[in-house]
């Protein structure tokens, strides 16, 4: 598992990058009440704002962590945004991306570095 400074986690599964937000981020956001996901098939560039999350407090974005193509989105979050608070590291993944070169993930933090980052 890798972590971004935007508090996303990245997990490689069947050569796809699965993206979600960390427990720390979900706690900071508070109760999530709305999620807007990108269209599957969309080509995105690193730092594009591709997901909108609204919590009881405010709206925030999730950025594309790397260049690539969105191949699958987690529609369950649209009907049940609270999943982001209940299981941020598991069932509440946001999207799966196809990327050219998985080595692009090497630059991100590992768990230890992320823990230090949020302290």
């Amino acid at each position: 598992m890798k972590y971004t400074e935007e508090h996303e986690w990245l997990r490689v599964e069947d050569d796809l990058v699965v993206v979600g937000i960390t427990e720390h981020a979900s706690t900071q956001l508070g109760d999530v009440v709305f999620v807007e996901l990108p269209e599957p098939g969309a080509t995105v560039s690193k730092d594009d704002e591709i997901v909108v999350i609204e919590s009881v407090k405010a709206a925030s974005d999730i950025l594309a962590p790397v260049d690539g193509e969105i191949v699958e989105v987690n529609e369950a979050l649209v009907d049940n945004p609270g999943l982001v608070n209940e299981d941020p590291l598991g069932d509440a993944w946001f999207f799966k991306m196809k990327v050219e070169d998985l080595s692009a993930l090497d630059d991100f933090m590992d768990e230890e570095a992320y823990k230090a980052f949020i302290e």
């Binding site: 508070g30 109760d31 009440v33 407090k57």
Partner: peptide
Amino acid sequence: VQYPLGVMK
């Protein structure tokens, strides 16, 4: 602004 229960609960 909130307690550990959280705004929704």
